[in-house]
Design a protein around this nucleic acid. Structure first.
Length: 595
RNA sequence: GGGGAUGUAGCUCAAUUGGUUAGAGCGCUGCCCUGUCACGGCAGAGGUUGCGGGUUCGAGUCCCGUCAUCCUCGCCA
C-alpha cells in the first residue's frame, strides 16, 4: 500500500464522469475564498486547477495559506448548473473534502503566482522556482520539451546517431570569447567551454559515423541580447558524403515533422533560397522577414543624372542610392518621417530624403528635383511607386545604405503590423562572404569559420579579390530571426592550407591551434557538411515570444548573472590556489546577500 | 566599453513648481458571511523613496557619483 497522502489523480483530469469517486489530490493552494460556513480553495498543479470545498468543520484551525502544499481526500461532486465554471476544464466538478493534510507550508510568496504577471523581472529571476510555477512559463517549457523531443525523433528516423561531445575542451583562437576553466592537474593551463561542437562533429565524420546529431549546450562569453544568452542550446548535426542540398532536404523534412507534431503547423517545402547578395540587395539584412514586402529598390539610374547633388555625389564616390516605397495605404505623417530620419541618422545615415510621389511633382524635399519632363514618371517606375506613395531614400556607402534601409524596413513592418503572427516564412540564405577584412588588425578573418568550403575551390586563382569570394555557408532564417547556420566543410588539405595562408595563420600556429583537426582530415576525410539550429530561439519564435528567457528555465540577466544562485561569485583563496589562479582584481568584501 | 529607459509598502503604481504626517489598488493579518471561482463587508499591520554624497530653511522631486534590471550599438568565427 502506498502512503495515504499520495494522489490518485492530478488537478487537471477530473470530469463529470468521475462523480461519486473518492479521490486524493496533491497540489499547491492557488486561491482561497472563505465564506465562513463554507470554504473554497483552488488546488493547482502542472496539469490544472481543481476546486476543493471544505465545510468549516473540516478546515478547522488548520491554516491553509497561499502556496501551501496539500493532500486532500474527498468525493468528486457534480456542481449545480449555476455553479459550473465554464472557464475551467474541471469546472463541472469539485471535491467535497473529507480530509486535508498539509504536506508543506509556505511564507506568502513575494509575487502572486498567476499566468499574467507584471512583476519586475529581477524579482522573478531571483525567485525563479516560484516564477516557474506560473502556468504561462510551464506551458513554454512544455512546448519546448515537445518541440525538442519531436525533433529528436525526426533525426532518429533519418538515421542520425545521438553522440555527446566534450564540455571541457580546447580554447579556439578565433570567433567568440571563450569561457575558460583552469586545470588543477596542469598548472597554468586552461580548458575552454565549447562555443559549438564544431571540430568534434567534423572528427566524427572522419571516424565514419556518417550522421551525427546532438542537443548541445554552447557557451560564448559575449554581451547578451533579447535573443542571446551566454549559454544556449543547439540542435547540432553533421553528415558525410553530402552537399548543401542534402542538408537543406534533411532539415526541411525534420522541421516539417517537428512543426506538425509540436505546433500543428504544416510547412511547405522546399523552403525558398536566396544568396546573401540577394538578401542584402532586396532587404538590406542577412535575415530577412519575408512576411511583408517593402523591398529596397535601386534608384541609381534616376539619381545618376538628377539635380540633387547629394545623390550624385554618393554615386560618384562609389556609393549607392536606394529607397523603399511605402504605399499610400500606409499613411506616413511628416512627424513619422522625422522619427524615421532620426533613427536613420543614429545608424550612420546623413539624412533621409523623401518624396511623396505624384506624376505632377508630388511633395517633400525631393519634389523639386522631379520637375523635369518625365522625371517623376521615371522615378516612380523605377521605385514601383503609384501616386500618393511615399518613397524614402538613403544615399551613402553601400554598407550604410543597406543597414539603414534594412532597419527602416523592419521598423515600418512593426509600425504598420505588416508581419502577421502565426505565419512561418522560412528561407535559406546561402553564399555568404568567405572572408571579412578587419580594419583594426589589418587582416582577413573567416566570416563563418576557417573550415568553411569556398564556392570556388581555386579561391579565385592568383590575383583574387578576397572580399568577393563566397563561401558554402548558409543560414536558416524564420520571420526575420537567424535560427541557425552551417556550411559545407573543407575536406581537401590543399584548400585548407591556402585558407590558412590568406588568414595569415602560419604553419607553426596552424599546427599548435588546429594540428589535431588537420591531421585527422589528412587520414581520409569524407566530404561533409552540417548545420546547427538554435533551439532557444526556435522555441521562443514558435510560441510568439520575443525573448528567449521565457523558454529557458534558469536564464541569466543582461550582465550574465544568475540572480537566483548568485553566480558568478568569488571563491575561497584555497580553491583558487588549487587551480593555480591568482586574480588581478583587488580582493573585495563579499557583497551583502540581497535578502 | 557607449547610448537610452526604469528603480517609492510584499506586488503594481501615484505623489502639482522643491513644502504639512509619502497615498491608492492588489496581496497579507484579524473579525463577519453556506455557493464562491477577480467572492463580499468591517478593521488593521506594512516605507532607509536602490545606495552614497551635494545644493537648500526644507529633497521621493534638483545636481554629482554609484549599483541593479531591461532594451540597444559595438561584440556574437
Amino acid at each position: 500500500m502506498g502512503a495515504s497522502w499520495k494522489r490518485t489523480h492530478d488537478c487537471g483530469e477530473l470530469r463529470a464522469a468521475h462523480a461519486g469517486a473518492t479521490v486524493v489530490l496533491n497540489g499547491w493552494v492557488n486561491k482561497r475564498r472563505d465564506h465562513g460556513g463554507i470554504y473554497f480553495l483552488d488546488l493547482r498543479d502542472r496539469y490544472g486547477i481543481t476546486q476543493i470545498v471544505l465545510p468549516q468543520k473540516v478546515a478547522g484551525d488548520v491554516k491553509l495559506g497561499p502556496e501551501y502544499v496539500l493532500s486532500v481526500r474527498g468525493k468528486v461532486t457534480l456542481r449545480d448548473g449555476a455553479n459550473i465554471n465554464r472557464e475551467r476544464p474541471t469546472g463541472e466538478i469539485e471535491i467535497a473534502v473529507e480530509h486535508v493534510e498539509v504536506l508543506s507550508s509556505s511564507p506568502v510568496p513575494p509575487f502572486p503566482i498567476e499566468d499574467e504577471i507584471d512583476t519586475a523581472l529581477d524579482l522573478r529571476l531571483r525567485y525563479r522556482y516560484l516564477d516557474l510555477r506560473r502556468g504561462s512559463l510551464q506551458r513554454n517549457l512544455i512546448h519546448r520539451s515537445k518541440f525538442i523531443q519531436a525533433m529528436r525523433r525526426a533525426f532518429e528516423r533519418e538515421g542520425f546517431l545521438d553522440i555527446e561531445t566534450p564540455i571541457l575542451t580546447k580554447a579556439t583562437p578565433e570567433g567568440a570569447r571563450d569561457y575558460l576553466v583552469p586545470s588543477r592537474v596542469h598548472p597554468g593551463e586552461f580548458y575552454a567551454l565549447p562555443q559549438s561542437p564544431q571540430i568534434f562533429k567534423q572528427l566524427l565524420m572522419v571516424s565514419g559515423l556518417d550522421k551525427y546529431f546532438q542537443v548541445a549546450r554552447c557557451f560564448r562569453d559575449e554581451d547578451l541580447r533579447a535573443d542571446r544568452q551566454p549559454e544556449f542550446t543547439q540542435l547540432d548535426m553533421e553528415m558525410s558524403f553530402v552537399d548543401e542540398e542534402d542538408i537543406f532536404g534533411t532539415w526541411e523534412r525534420v522541421l516539417q515533422a517537428t512543426m506538425r507534431e509540436a505546433c500543428g503547423v504544416e510547412l511547405e517545402s522546399p523552403f525558398p533560397r536566396m544568396t546573401w547578395d540577394e538578401s542584402m540587395e532586396r532587404f538590406g539584412v542577412d535575415k530577412p522577414d519575408l512576411r511583408f514586402g517593402l523591398e529596397l529598390r535601386d534608384a541609381k539610374s534616376w539619381a545618376a543624372d538628377c539635380e540633387f547633388q547629394v545623390f550624385r555625389n554618393a554615386l560618384a564616390a562609389g556609393g549607392r542610392v536606394m529607397g523603399i516605397t511605402v504605399p499610400a495605404a500606409l499613411a506616413l505623417s511628416r512627424k513619422d518621417i522625422t522619427t524615421l530620419e532620426d533613427g536613420a541618422k543614429a545608424l550612420g545615415a546623413k539624412g533621409l530624403a523623401w518624396w511623396k510621389a505624384e506624376k505632377a511633382g508630388g511633395a517633400g524635399p525631393l519634389a523639386k528635383f522631379c520637375v523635369a519632363p518625365g522625371s517623376a514618371e521615371r522615378l516612380m517606375a523605377l521605385m514601383s511607386a503609384s501616386d500618393g506613395d511615399t518613397i524614402l531614400f538613403v544615399a551613402d556607402r553601400e554598407a550604410v545604405v543597406r543597414k539603414v534601409l534594412g532597419d527602416l524596413r523592419n521598423q515600418l513592418g512593426r509600425k504598420f503590423s505588416l508581419a502577421q503572427s502565426g505565419t512561418w516564412k522560412f528561407t535559406w540564405v546561402t553564399s555568404f562572404p568567405l572572408f571579412e577584412w578587419d580594419e583594426d588588425s589589418k587582416r582577413w578573418f573567416s566570416a563563418h569559420h576557417p573550415f568553411t568550403a569556398p564556392v570556388d575551390w581555386d579561391l579565385g586563382g592568383a590575383n583574387a579579390d578576397f572580399a568577393k569570394l563566397s563561401s558554402r555557408a548558409y543560414d536558416l532564417v524564420l520571420n526575420g530571426w537567424e535560427l541557425g547556420s552551417g556550411s559545407v566543410r573543407i575536406h581537401r588539405a590543399d584548400v585548407q592550407q591556402r585558407i590558412f595562408e590568406i588568414l595569415g595563420i602560419g604553419p607553426e600556429e596552424r599546427q599548435r591551434k588546429f594540428g589535431f583537426l588537420l591531421e585527422a582530415l589528412s587520414f581520409g576525410a569524407p566530404p561533409h557538411a552540417g548545420f546547427a539550429l538554435g533551439l532557444d530561439r526556435t522555441s521562443a519564435l514558435t510560441l510568439g515570444l520575443d525573448n528567449i528567457r521565457d523558454v529557458i528555465a534558469f536564464p541569466k540577466t543582461a550582465s550574465a548573472a544568475d540572480l537566483m544562485c548568485g553566480a558568478p561569485s568569488q571563491v575561497a583563496p584555497e580553491q583558487l590556489a588549487e587551480v593555480h589562479v591568482r586574480t588581478a582584481v583587488e580582493a573585495q568584501v563579499a557583497p551583502e546577500p540581497k535578502a
